[in-house]
């Protein structure tokens, strides 16, 4: 198990390999379909994004509502491929990592290599487990989007697996090769 801390340094990113089990601590931002659309509307209108994306990690996640006294509700990943059309541009703007579930498009994978970034998968459907590893949750923008609002999250040893690394490896392809061997 590899422990990593935000912000991700280039050295850390280069060291991570597809298939590595990782625990991540520090700040990440939650954003899914409608949130990405808002980012792009802002970019289109030459407005500032609601947070400085440089060096950051985005978690594709929309939680259940937090009951009184709790930090966050269930908070597992959503399917990343729905964000594929947005991701390369965000990587060009300095985004360094994404957390979600499932495969990415070839275009995203190439952009990950080009921009020295990393794509992690969290355990899909394990929303309760994920909630236990989030220490803080703060609304940053777009409250009108409900579960799709932009949140700043403080992760504490959040369990992840490296799916696409900065050298172009893909865990889903590696898994298939392993089987055919």
């Amino acid at each position: 198990m590899i422990h990593i801390k935000m912000p991700l340094t280039e050295e850390t990113i280069l060291r991570l390999k597809a298939g590595d089990m990782v625990e991540l601590s520090g700040t990440v931002y939650s954003a899914r379909d409608a949130t990405h659309k808002k980012f792009f509307d802002a970019l289109e209108n030459h407005e500032a994004m609601p947070f400085d994306i440089e060096g950051q990690v985005i978690y594709y996640m929309g939680p259940t509502p937090s009951p009184p006294g709790k930090i966050i509700g269930a908070a597992g990943p959503t399917t990343s491929s729905r964000m594929d059309s947005y991701t390369p541009r965000l990587l060009e703007l300095g985004l360094k990592g994404m957390i979600g579930k499932g495969k990415r498009s070839m275009e995203v994978r190439e952009s990950i290599v080009k921009n020295k970034a990393v794509y992690f998968v969290a355990i899909g459907g394990a929303g309760a487990l994920a909630a236990k590893r989030i220490r803080k949750s703060q609304l940053i923008a777009y409250p009108e989007l409900g579960p799709e609002a932009l949140y700043k999250l403080e992760m504490d040893r959040f369990p992840l697996i490296v799916a696409n690394d900065s050298s172009g490896n893909d865990i889903f392809e590696l898994a298939r090769k392993e089987l055919n061997r």
């Binding site: 298939g19 597992g76 459907g125 394990a126 236990k132 865990i171």
Partner: peptide
Amino acid sequence: LGKHVLEKLLENAQIAEKEWIPYCQD
């Protein structure tokens, strides 16, 4: 990795029921 995932799923089910957090956010 497959075993690791299955273990985490069982842990998730326990946490969900014991700490009363939905099993999945969707």
